[in-house]
Design a protein around this nucleic acid. Structure first.
Lengths: 187, 187
DNA sequence: ACCTGAACACCGTTCAAGT
DNA sequence: ACCTGAACACCGTTCAAGT
């Protein structure tokens, strides 16, 4: 990439992050270009779709998440590990308000720029879920796709201003549905 | 209302219902006017905001829901009554794809055309929840606003095409979090 | 009373013309 | 290679002019 192009790319990313933080994942593409001081065509040259921009914005956070999941996979408390990963994932989605809908759609669309990241992210969660299930700490009747959906539901609640104040409490409610509750016979 | 105006009103409502069923609650207002064969100004005269149109569309369903809640309030199985009401409410929201976000915002905005209907709806749910809690059938640490948020989360899941196939299963998962699980000491 | 549609201020996205 | 911004096809919403 030419030096001037790289400078534009980096600046667009920086401005994109600002605007998504301020206005959510559906912020105006024109505003991004405008605030970055480049032509709208330059934005589209670097990020041909909104998903491409979001993917670039999320990459760091997703990599962190993958690293965290890796560490948690050897934790000796698989139930807590799962919940801890869930909590961080919800927080990342919420820090890009509204992005959860794109992520959910991307899972079903191999052509989306967000597809690979989201599949990797979901796979991390699936492994943590499977470990918790293997040790009887998570209910057995859900799979990784269900976990992703519940994560989406929690992110959605977080994203609604009028529900935000209850989001942490509701995280606990849904987490309690994922974790096995009762004392099992062989405890 | 003049006869010609009433005719326009009714037709706009009919077309609005069609379009929202086809394209969701964020269907183009212009499209509604276009398909109804009236000027865009006529649509805005009858429904000054999108919320006003949605409110008119939802009124029948909400009234049904209120009636159903009334009947369920004397049911001898308050846990099942709550779940049954929840299921129908989620279905109504889903039959107006995307409307749950407007409903959630309307709860916090007394000026929204949807505010009153949504408050009434939430109050119905709150009464069913309170009854279930009084009989120890629902967890005690949630209130009507939490129930509404969980309902929103379920409606959101239903509205995502890629999650739709798991929505019924996840309804069960979240319902199980609302209902009290274990066998309590005094059973 | 009510209806109409031009007008305004926006979008997302593309692409010919420039450097 | 890369950048620019006019152009196209849309929005939601308002309001002067008509019937």
């Amino acid at each position: 990439m030419r030096a001037d192009a790289k400078k534009n790319y980096d600046h667009l990313l920086e401005v994109g992050r600002e605007l998504v933080a301020e206005q959510g994942a559906d912020a105006s593409m024109r505003d991004v270009a405008r605030r970055a001081g480049v032509g709208i065509g330059t934005l589209y040259r670097h990020f041909p779709t909104r998903e491409a921009l979001l993917e670039a914005l999320l990459r760091n956070s997703f990599d962190q998440l993958t690293a965290k999941a890796g560490g948690l996979e050897t934790s000796d408390s698989p139930g807590e590990a799962l919940v801890s990963w869930l909590r961080e994932t919800v927080a990342i989605a919420h820090s890009h308000r509204g992005v959860i809908a794109s992520m959910t759609a991307a899972i079903a669309d191999p052509d989306s720029a967000l597809h690979d990241s989201c599949m990797t992210m979901r796979a991390s969660g699936t492994r943590l879920l499977a470990r918790a299930q293997a040790e009887g700490k998570a209910r057995a009747d859900i799979d990784g796709a269900d976990l992703f959906a519940l994560l989406g539901a929690l992110a959605w609640i977080n994203d609604q201003p009028s529900l935000r104040s209850r989001a942490d409490h509701l995280f606990g409610v849904i987490a309690s549905a994922i974790l096995v509750q009762g004392v099992s016979a062989d405890d």
